[in-house]
């Protein structure tokens, strides 16, 4: 039997890794973050049935390590939800890009 190659741990699978002190700061969620939570609850509800928590997790696990480390908690959720909704054909990338552009204009944001 061939040697077992060492398993490369996925970036989210951190149990047992070395880390420093536990961060103590806590903060309130902003409205956009609370709305992401609401969106996931609605999408995974029996009535809508477009998302499962397993899919949300899988989406987060495939964002890439840099994104995973840089994004806040609900930012990870939002990126995962967008990717899965596109994957399932519920929305298109073009739909999202057009809406993002419209929001930038509406909010007076420079590019």
């Amino acid at each position: 039997m061939s040697q077992n190659p060492p398993v490369t741990k996925a970036y989210h699978d951190v149990g047992g890794d070395d880390f420093g002190p536990i961060p103590t700061e806590d903060g309130a969620y902003q409205l956009w973050e609370r709305r992401v939570d609401a969106m996931m609850r609605l999408l995974s509800s029996p009535q809508v049935g477009l998302m499962r928590v397993d899919e949300l997790r899988r989406g987060i696990e495939t964002l890439g390590e840099d994104v995973y480390n840089a994004e806040p908690y609900y930012g990870k959720w939002a990126r995962s939800l967008a990717a899965i909704m596109i994957e399932k054909g519920v929305v298109s990338r073009e739909d999202l890009d057009a809406k993002i552009e419209a929001l930038r204009v509406e909010r007076g944001l420079k590019r």
Partner: peptide, 17 residues
């Protein structure tokens, strides 16, 4: 962070849905 790229993506997704 309401106007971050990710917040815009989140808001856009919600509005498109």
């Amino acid at each position: 962070t309401s106007n971050s790229d990710t917040a815009l993506l989140a808001d856009a997704l919600r509005l498109v849905l």
